[in-house]
Design a protein around this nucleic acid. Structure first.
Lengths: 136, 136
DNA sequence: GTATATTTGCAACAATGTTGCAAAATCTAA
DNA sequence: TTAGATTTTGCAACATTGTTGCAAATATAC
């Protein structure tokens, strides 16, 4: 995982600092999206909160990770694994009411909704609620 | 609008206090979803932040309003106008990159995505990004 | 109008978003 | 491999939002 983290950082022109490697490794190892607090608790080392905040922001800027906004203002972060060939981005995530985990989903079949006159869409974010395999 | 607000409160067993009427009127008058700060700035009177917070929470509990979570942890609130007959809820909103406003949309045509084995959906939240009529 | 049930304002504290700045680490080029 | 340039880090600081307890004020029911 650390090798993968290092490679990812190299590709994106992000210097390989301990915090970045640690955060990236943590996200790579996680099967679900993590909140900032969860990330902090899973790190091997201790870093200042600001540093983690800025690390996440750098990753977001470089599209190494993406954020998922949940009801109640909760935010989770996950590695960006699915490439978006088309100009219209489409993110789909699954939120489990049982374990509160968020999982990234591949782009589903989707009929773009008809929008009111004059509105133009450039992307879609879909969050599906329900029960995951473990909580069903 | 105040009459409508009063009626709504009565229907939901919520006492008609000045803060509740004021918040509800503000949301009823708004064509788009509002953040807590926007609501506070549009109120006719001044209330403690906690009171507004608890007012919003009461409204959410009673489904008088619903919240929309945006990228970056931004949260907006809007009157719940669309009834959900089916057990599966489906909320669709439009976020305009130009004016940053959020508009509620009617339930669109939608093919539920195929989920991984063992996953069961109970609801969907779709946020469409793009440009609204005014910003196009 | 009075009694009971709710709501409000205030104090307080946690989590998160955000910036400036000097010290420390990283990277680049010789 | 090191010196210098560039980035990143830690810390201080402050804003916003989420959240609770409690006593005072208000609303609703009788």
């Amino acid at each position: 995982m650390i090798d993968e983290a290092n490679a990812l950082l190299g590709n994106k022109n992000l210097s390989r600092t301990p915090c970045r490697v640690d955060v990236l490794r943590t996200l790579l190892e996680s099967g679900s999206a993590l909140s900032e607090t969860e990330i902090r608790n899973k790190l091997s080392y201790t870093f200042d909160r600001t540093t983690i905040y800025r690390t996440l922001r750098s990753f977001l800027d470089q599209d190494v990770i993406h954020s998922i906004a949940l009801e109640g203002g909760d935010v989770r972060y996950a590695i960006t694994r699915h490439k978006h060939k088309s100009k219209e981005h489409f993110h789909a995530h699954f939120y489990c009411d049982g374990c509160n985990n968020v999982y990234c989903l591949p782009r589903p079949e989707f009929t773009p909704p008809v929008l009111p006159e004059g509105f133009a869409a450039s992307g879609y974010d879909l969050i599906i609620n329900g029960r995951c395999k473990s909580c069903n």
